[in-house]
Design a protein around this nucleic acid. Structure first.
Length: 510
RNA sequence: GCUGAAUUCGUCUAACGGUUAGGACGGCAGAUUCUCAUUCUGCAAAUAGGGGUUCGAUUCCCCUAUUCAGUACCA
């Protein structure tokens, strides 16, 4: 019998979620949906010193924008509520004490300062300090103190911590869905802190294992940075007696920076000119980091791009809707090696999505953009415009510049284009074309305009490129635009002719 | 330093012992077009190094190198 799939995304609200986090959430979501399972969002705020106001809301909004739907969590509740670890504090102490009682953990009174100086001394000797089997009997803890001394110090209010008692020599064999078998010698591990009296909160390790167990998580899908603590987690499940229901693990490869070394960091984006966050982030201190949403990316393109960063379908398909991703996703096809993030590819995905977008859908996005610039446009016209410009856009932010001239007559004319085309016979030809063709047109719409101009071109034996580009200069003010016939059609007879006459008047004879 | 993981075109990756090592992004060159884009076609571009195993290794094993991660009373 296969167990029900229950996965969780468990970020800590210490800042904005970056794209690596979104990808982890996405893989969890795809896996859950693929197997008809449940997607849980748990907030791991067990470090009271690193809490950042607004980070939690940012996480919710980023997931919503990305189309990653949560079944159980802080916002939606569920059978294992609360889903915020700071609201579950009393649960963890119980298990920490249980571990002490079973001799799998112990109280330690060493202060952070004491440990710090110990570390420095070791470093000075070229050694590294580890709080482990080799030294724990000599440290200030319940292993070296009598039970009376321990309870006395706790009662008198000394700061304490509960540490896991890592076995001195045990081969820990683990299984990872992506990496296969991994074995680690427990002698190389240290006695990690599980609970701290300072804020009455567990550390990640304890809280994570306890909650995953209580919430009946079936698969833990998380970043590779957690692989080194997997042995500890295995030992915790064992010590708590939960090995038989322990979840399966899958450690995702890291997302690396586009150039240079290391994993993608918050600073790379600003330095290299691309977002590392899904949404714009404003820190409480007032720092601003750009986001994919504000930079003009479509959520579907963003998700598609992230999905392919570390996973591949095994076919040559690259464009996937969320439904297709759910259908195709499997952990077996997640790669083992870190993936260098490519801003170019992100842009390409977005361009593909805009190009393939339905005219009306893009028109709907265009209406508010045009309004922001002070003009009104109805959905019918916006859709027509969308059809003309969409193949030229990479980001949503490109749209306005691509259709600006449809709303604003040129105030000035591009110098290079003017020098190239506003010379020789061209101005005279435009005047002739205007008077003898455009002004006399019965119906001023694309096919008629096209027919008439072609006729005139052919009769007079004129060069099409010269004439059309000169005409484009007078109407758009520059040398790049979609088909001029469509532009004239949209502008209408009056506006088109007014623009040509104005150019004729202001640009002179050439 | 120690522990672990990883290593195919510049980048993302396919090939689960036998292929002219495939695709995509980016680059370059053409074609199409009234311009710009789009689109299409083509070109250059890779198995980290060394040992094994095998009739045959990108693929399996070992060593080396390199990279990354972890090494907190952070997650």
């Amino acid at each position: 019998m296969k167990k029900t799939v229950r996965v969780r995304f468990a970020p800590s609200p210490t800042g904005p979620l970056h794209i690596g986090g979104v990808r982890t959430a996405l893989y969890n979501y795809l896996f859950a949906r693929r197997h008809g399972g449940t997607m849980i969002l748990r907030i791991e705020d067990t470090d009271s010193t690193r809490y950042v106001p607004g980070a939690e809301e940012y996480i919710f909004e980023a997931l919503r924008w990305s189309g990653i739907l949560i079944d159980e969590g802080v916002e939606q509740g569920g059978p294992h509520a609360p889903y915020r670890q700071s609201q579950r504090r009393e649960i963890y102490l119980r298990y920490a004490k249980q571990l002490v009682a079973s001799n799998n953990a112990y109280y330690a009174f060493d202060t952070p300062q004491q440990l710090e100086t110990l570390r420095k001394e070791c470093e000075a000797r070229g050694e590294s300090f580890a709080y482990n089997h080799a030294v724990r009997e000599k440290m200030d803890n319940s292993l070296s103190l009598s039970p009376e001394q321990v309870s006395e110090r706790i009662e008198r209010g000394d700061g304490w911590v509960i540490r896991f008692r890592m076995p001195a020599a045990e081969q820990i064999c683990m299984h990872d869905l992506i990496r296969g078998e991994v074995t680690v010698d427990s002698a190389t591990l240290d006695d990690k802190v599980l609970y701290k009296s300072a804020d009455n909160l567990p550390t990640y390790h304890l809280a994570n294992i306890v909650d995953d167990h209580l919430m009946e998580i079936s698969h833990v899908i998380r970043g590779e940075e957690w692989l080194p603590s997997l042995p500890l987690h295995y030992m915790l499940y064992k010590a708590l007696g939960w090995s038989d229901t322990q979840p399966e693990f899958a450690h995702l490869p890291l997302i690396l920076k586009p150039a240079g070394q290391g994993k993608l960091s918050k600073r790379d984006g600003d330095k290299m000119g691309f977002p590392v966050f899904p949404l714009l982030w404003q820190s409480p201190e007032g720092e601003v980091a750009r986001g994919y949403r504000e930079d003009g990316y479509l959520p579907a393109a963003f998700v598609n791009m992230l999905a392919l960063l570390g996973w591949n379908p095994g076919t040559e398909q690259e464009l996937f809707s969320m439904e297709e991703l759910i259908e195709a996703f499997s952990l077996e096809r997640v790669g083992k090696n870190g993936a260098r993030f490519s801003p170019d590819k992100a842009r390409w995905f977005n361009a593909q999505y805009i190009h393939h977008m339905d005219d009306t859908a893009l028109g709907e996005l265009l209406v508010p953009i045009v309004r922001e610039h002070g003009f009104q446009v109805d959905i019918a016209l916006a859709s027509r415009i969308a059809a003309l410009i969409k193949e030229r856009a990479t980001l949503l932010g490109d749209l306005w510049e691509l259709c600006r001239y449809l709303f604003v007559a040129p105030e000035e004319y591009d110098r290079a284009t003017r020098e190239k085309y506003w010379k020789g016979d061209n101005p005279a030809l435009i005047a002739d074309l205007t008077v003898n063709v455009l002004e006399r047109l019965e119906s001023f719409s694309t096919p008629q305009i096209e027919d008439a101009i072609h006729h005139w071109l052919e009769e007079g034996g004129h060069n099409m490129g010269q004439v059309m580009n000169t005409l484009r200069l007078t109407i758009t003010g520059a040398n790049r635009s979609p088909s001029l016939y469509d532009i004239c059609d949209i502008l209408g007879r009056d506006e088109t002719l007014a623009r040509i006459r104005r150019a004729l008047a202001t640009l002179g004879e050439g």
